[in-house]
Design a protein around this nucleic acid. Sequence first.
RNA 1: GUGGAAUUAGUUCAGUGGUUAGAGCGCCAGAUUGUGGAUCUGGAUGUCACGGGUUCAAAUCCCGUAUUCCACCCCA
Length: 421
Amino acid sequence: MPQIKAPKGTRDILPPETSAWQAVERAFASVCARFGYAEVRVPTFEHTELFQRGVGDTTDIVQKEMYTFPDKGGRSLSLRPEGTAGVMRAYVENGMPSLPAPVKLYYLISAFRYENVQKGRYREFHQFGCEAVGSAGPAIDAEMIGLLSVFFGELGLSRLAVRLNSIGCPACRPAYHEALRAYLRPRLGEMCGLCNERFDRNPLRVLDCKEERCQPAIEGAPAQLDHLCADCRAHFDGLKDELDRIGVPYSVDRRIVRGLDYYTRTVFEFVSENVGTQGTICGGGRYDGLVEEVGGPPTPGIGFALGVERLLMEMGAQGIPAAAPATVALYVAAVDEAAGGAARALCHRVRAAGVAAEAEWNGRGLKAQMKAANRMGARYVVVLGGDELAAGTARLKDMKDGSEREVALDRLPQELAAALK
RNA sequence: GUGGAAUUAGUUCAGUGGUUAGAGCGCCAGAUUGUGGAUCUGGAUGUCACGGGUUCAAAUCCCGUAUUCCACCCCA
């Protein structure tokens, strides 16, 4: 039979790597709980229209990167390309606008984008995310950035820069777009072809261009930050004050532009230099029009998405040791198959008493069992043979120093628990 | 969607036209009969990514496809 491989852009996460994943998942859940965020679990696929409306019809994500398919009932469904739209749909659908605000939610999901694969980018990838819905002021923006700062700190990550920007609101954005267009129009001749396309479609994107020839024009371009309305300006200044108060350093980067249509005002990123050109480990921002867009009452919100693959890559690059799989406390070896049954039964009893134990399942010899015990990092080994079974006692061997001591078999779970303290 | 590099054992890789395709690590077994880590000895495992072509002869040269990695685009 021809071999079947994982589809392009997907991969298997296997032990011992899964231990590292579990460790960051636990750390994230722990920080979220402390900050008052509760977990939500939402569907992996939604009606395509949700993403068209929520993420935005003009975005690359919706235009060319979605896994969209008709189901057998003729509905158009799409694998989620990100988490926020689905969570906001659930927020509205389940009456959460009537809960005390802000409603603070977090999630661990995989998301799907049909893109070409490269470093830090996959077709199925994993995100941690938070959403805080129902608070319009900048304090909640700062709380969220503070949450991330604590999370990264607890993982031992340093040197992650916080970049901050404001991209305005529907009130001040049109005027800025006009100013930007007016500035760019006479310079289009000296800029790359792509930027000329961007100029028509979404002039904000021009600011993101890395093309050498476009840099002079970009440097002098007006920034949204300098064209904020009074409310947006006050919000941005308020956020900076809040961040100063909680002691989170940041830099203002007036070129940050998020690729999703729903962002308003605050946008931010946590950036590293260790993830190839995919330096953004975490990106987020405010989305004050999104809830309304998916059919709810006008409600402000802010959230972020954090790329788990990129996070783990960054931890590796910063030399943070990956969490290791749990080790076995006791290995029950059997001299021969006559003692094998008793060994397996003892192993079961010890496990039932709450201690991680292993035994031999393929009838290999004693020496192979000792090797296996050593390799799996077993703390203690007990060897069962005819003598031990007759006497009801066996020697408990400490694999660290090789010392042995006599224990009664029926008291082994208690003895172990005491020895492991 | 575009471009570059790659694909050989479980894994990391060597092998650029000529016998039964190799190494390290890992795995299995043994080194006097019931005890791990070190060392030594032996062993198993390959449709050489897949499909075509050139040739007396292809892992090796050519074409196509897939996948991986890197970059563009964009984003987590």
